[in-house]
Design a protein around this nucleic acid. Structure first.
Length: 271
DNA sequence: CGCCAGGCCTGCACGC
DNA sequence: TGCGTGCAGGCCTGGC
């Protein structure tokens, strides 16, 4: 499941290969993603040059002149470079062929992904404009988290997964960051003070940065087409470890469903 | 064979 | 009335 570190790894891998390149052809094999791929995407993109590849939350932004190709990988999407003559396989829904001979391919078995075109500033697109601060930027800090949670009655774990509060923190990293900050996922967000939010902001950034570093180590394989073999999953401290001993205190980790998502935590360390 | 995770948008219910 | 918030539903398929 691509979380923010995988999306950022994808961005870093693709950027040097597509920036400055011109789109020669667009092949859409299946338009039925979470929203239909625009019918006129090929007409719009062909002949355009990619100026930059950016990321906002988990959205990839291919800046191309006065518009932007916005791509979201959902939970099973992969975007990578294939050989120009590589035969498409099942779930390979879209190819972007560039005039430099490179082909960027989207594979998304569950089709929760998204491909759309936006003319004008993509940050003002309806899906992007109300997203909270980037977790790797200084905009994510104790002041913001504290202020933005005063009126919330819900648990901190659910708040962390609200994209309007913070961009791009998914279930795995919400679990991991809360463990590292020693905060109980059930704790109401409004009851957390400035100091603990400072710690949490630091741990969120730390966890995501480490994961990006680990994803970076498999960057070559990924872009080469071997799929996403990032190594950070070996470093999860609580995620998917219900019943296992806490690395910190040895107490058995607990698992439960919170806001329709699996939560894992240490009942002794996280208060 | 049937269930269900998973991101995240959408629509609805609710309280101030 | 309107707005922010919370909650549940829906989209899909691979893997158990």
């Amino acid at each position: 499941m691509p979380e923010l570190p995988e999306v950022e790894t994808t961005r870093r891998g693709l950027a040097p290969l597509v920036c400055g390149a011109t789109v020669a052809a667009v092949i859409v094999r299946n338009r039925a993603l979470r929203r239909p791929v625009p019918r006129d995407l090929a007409r719009i993109l062909t002949g355009r040059r990619i100026d930059a590849l950016e990321r906002r939350a988990k959205y990839l932004l291919f800046r191309a002149g006065d518009g932007t190709l916005i791509v979201h990988l959902g939970m099973s999407g992969r975007l990578w470079v294939v050989a120009a003559d590589a035969a498409p396989q099942t779930h390979d829904h879209l190819d972007l062929a560039f005039s430099n001979g490179r082909v960027v391919r989207l594979r998304d078995p569950r089709r929760f992904g998204l491909v759309l075109w936006h003319s004008g500033d993509p940050l003002r697109h309806r899906l992007l404009r109300d997203i909270g601060p980037e977790p790797l930027s200084d905009a994510l800090n104790a002041d913001w988290l504290f202020r933005a949670t005063r009126a919330r009655s819900g648990a901190i774990k659910n708040a962390l997964m609200d994209s309007h509060l913070i961009a791009g923190v998914g279930n795995i990293y919400a679990n991991e960051a809360l463990f590292r900050a020693r905060i109980n996922p059930k704790l109401p967000a409004r009851r957390i003070g400035l100091e603990r939010y400072a710690l949490l902001a630091a741990r969120i950034r730390e966890t995501l940065s480490e994961a990006i570093g680990a994803g970076g180590s498999s960057l070559r394989d990924y872009v080469g087409g071997d799929g996403m073999a990032g190594r950070f999953q070996n470093r999860f401290l609580v995620y998917d470890r219900g019943g296992e001993p806490c690395v910190n205190c040895g107490a058995p980790l607990r698992a439960f469903v919170q806001g329709q998502r699996s939560t894992y935590y240490c009942p002794r360390c996280q208060r």
